[in-house]
Design a protein around this nucleic acid. Structure first.
Lengths: 236, 236
DNA sequence: CGGTAGGTTGACGTCCCTCAAGTATTGTGG
DNA sequence: CCACAATACTTGAGGGACGTCAACCTACCG
């Protein structure tokens, strides 16, 4: 496979590259990598020698505290870069784990960093990608800080579904590969409480569970639950 | 004033510029701006025509929900760029307000964006600045999601103090310009509960209040309160 | 010296946590 | 395809953290 014909090229970190940069990029690639479900992809974003662009599957980044509390920071899927922190001098001590089987394109961080620093054609895409990720992180701050658990879970599911891509009518609904433990650690509550809220949402008809591996989503009803969560501009 | 002799040059977004880029940067500058305490600096990060590098004072960015809940996303001071979201195509609908009187260097977003996209000498600094900010945002996610209010406030104060810069012994302690309302909205609790926790920290000797405009901080004791908040690497 | 913004206190309610004992679902080896 | 183990989820009771309201106090500003 070649970067210029990669299906995620248009949304990747290096989306703004032109043909001659695709060649450079291909040289920075080490090859493909694949991870099994639940595998640790990066133990520490600060010290990873490699970085990845996901081409298939889901992963998430998280921090762990001394006493075992875990915070899930972000979910990654097709086109996402693992991770931006590898490109700076300092970073948070976070890890990345796969949620499903994952296929990814593998780069050596130092080579990629040199490439990005020596060529301005990547810049528009990098600025875009980064400001998109920063905005998403800011949104999540609002979700965690200002919303209650029910609203936060509704927002989480809606975000997840919209990132899973729109499927044609009649197709199998997007698989939602989060277990209760991951929902809980994403919004900062316990697994048990997350379970109670999920059942409440089920009661409202906002979601419908399919075994333990996913659910069907009624986006309209979920949005209704999360409606107060829309950030607004306010002047004073 | 000139960018090349600016005291915050070394920590600014464009920190990696060389002499000829300082000239380009000076051309992208519109001049200086100053804001009074409590003034709205940006109404919406997505649509701001201008961006700023703070040279003096403190500001913060925040979102507002329909029902009035507010989430403070980040604090900005000397050297910080307001804001990264102006450089991408999409951004969160957040605003920025000054916390003290603020002096800043003003840029036109489109000119600065063009400059950053046409010159690779800025890239190392931009990547660094951005990954630093992204890490800080990730840390705040952990703070909001996994810590309780007392730990979160301790972390908030410690972060604030360390960013205020180290003062020589015997000097006036760093002014801490947050009122209870801002502490509360930063960690996602109510003003009243924030007050109770601040008094608890006072009782522990971790902070000492000086009227309503700041406090003296015992960093060691505060760190003790926040000790569980250190992210660790864990493998399984 | 009075007005105003900011901070305090107490009583009570809700959201979320903890523990412990369950039941359902999924994965695995025969 | 079945039995079994392992993993995931559920339920209930009781408690702690945090929110709400209303009244009161205190520090700052002109």
């Amino acid at each position: 496979m070649d970067c210029s014909s990669c299906p995620v090229r248009g949304v990747a970190l290096y989306r703004s590259a032109a043909p001659d940069q695709w060649d450079l990029l291909n040289k920075a690639r080490i090859g493909a990598a694949s991870f099994k479900k639940g595998q640790l992809i990066m133990a520490d974003q600060r010290e990873s020698r490699f970085a990845y662009t996901i081409t298939e599957g889901w992963a998430f980044s998280f921090t762990l505290l001394k006493d075992g509390r875990r915070q899930i920071l972000d979910y990654y899927t097709m086109g996402d870069f693992l991770t931006l922190s590898t490109l700076g001098q300092q970073g948070i001590r976070a890890s990345v784990r796969s949620l499903t089987a994952v296929k990814a394109c593998k780069f050596e961080v130092s080579t990629l960093h040199k490439l990005l620093c020596s060529n301005h054609h990547f810049n528009p895409g990098v600025l875009d990608y980064i400001s998109e990720k920063k905005s998403l992180c800011d949104s999540r701050l609002t979700t965690l800080g200002a919303l209650n658990a029910e609203e936060a879970i509704a927002v989480l599911i809606l975000t997840f579904v919209s990132r899973a891509g729109v499927k044609p009518e009649g197709e199998e609904p997007a698989l939602f590969p989060l277990r209760l433990a991951e929902i809980a650690d994403a919004v900062g509550i316990t697994e048990i409480h997350a379970g109670r809220i999920i059942r409440r949402l089920e009661g409202l008809g906002a979601i419908e569970r399919l075994g333990t591996r996913g659910f069907r989503v009624d986006a309209g009803r979920l949005r209704h639950v999360a409606q107060e969560a829309d950030a607004i501009l306010f002047e004073g």
